[in-house]
Design a protein around this nucleic acid. Structure first.
Lengths: 149, 149
DNA sequence: TTAACAGATAAACTTGGCTTTAGGTCAAGA
DNA sequence: TCTTGACCTAAAGCCAAGTTTATCTGTTAA
């Protein structure tokens, strides 16, 4: 069992944030001893899941809904399974978007390397948009491709 | 040349957002004809870069700073190059984090598949935290590993 | 000529996720 | 005893990134 201050240090999360999560109902099983919160390993694992679901794009209120499903027992397995499936798809899609973003950034690094070497952007502008070096063209084209959702 | 409404449709961005970006100084070269904004291909490419920098985690004010650097000419090539280099690193790191998030989500999908098949979580809890099926253990361990920054 | 649009502005509002503030309880050490 | 520090609550505040609202202008179509 840990106090809120210990959890804050261990997990590197402000005390105010932990209290906020608690107020929002993200630790439905947390015990209290004369008013003082007692975090157990269960709550530490919950913090892991909160972090995961947050990064996957879920809002606090939806994380709360998940916690409530957990409290409902085995009847909510299907909903919970579906939630994770959906968030998995969302994160896969976001990683794809970020790969495209990355290719734009890589292109821009090449762009400025070249501009610095040349002292201007004239040569690059002559190559744009279709006569870039093969590898760079790939980055550029990927970065400028549309997503068909 | 395009009106704000045309750009909004083409790029699927609300008119209000385009005006907001303009107000924040993200289109320093945009022309106006008797008060009406005229978006050119330059502004469309700028929208691409705004999108890229936003996704990489940059705030509007920093994107504005970049636009100002562009207006300063070749003397700011090094700063611009450094900006893209930094954002590239930031996105690479974020993709790594998301890969870990993804492994947690995959683990949870397996978890609930198993719980649904068993009707309860007893068997899973016996396997936790170190006796999961090999492939699943990998997901679990990766998802629960600490980042040493 | 009048109504409907598309464009414009300034300023207020919204949202989510915290953080800060103000005020209070309780236990331990000087 | 008194003060320090960790805990508590409720409520207000903050911030970024838009969005909405109220009001105005100019063009076209019936």
């Amino acid at each position: 069992m840990y106090t809120i201050g210990q959890v804050s240090q261990m997990c590197n999360i402000p005390v105010s944030t932990l209290r906020y999560y608690d107020k929002e109902g993200l630790f439905p099983h947390m015990e209290r001893v004369s008013g003082i919160r007692k975090f157990s390993d269960r709550e530490l694992e919950t913090l892991h899941i909160i972090d995961c679901l947050k990064k996957s794009g879920l809002e606090i209120r939806d994380i709360k809904k998940y916690m409530q499903w957990c409290a409902e027992g085995s009847s909510s397995y299907p909903q919970r399974r579906e939630l994770f499936e959906n968030q998995k798809k969302a994160v896969e899609k976001e990683i794809e978007h970020l790969q495209k973003t990355l290719d734009m950034l890589r292109f821009k690094c090449w762009y400025y390397d070249t501009a610095i070497a040349d002292g201007n952007e004239d040569r690059i502008n002559e190559m744009l948009p279709n006569n870039l070096p093969v590898d760079i063209q790939k980055l550029y084209d990927h970065a400028h491709s549309d997503d068909e959702d």
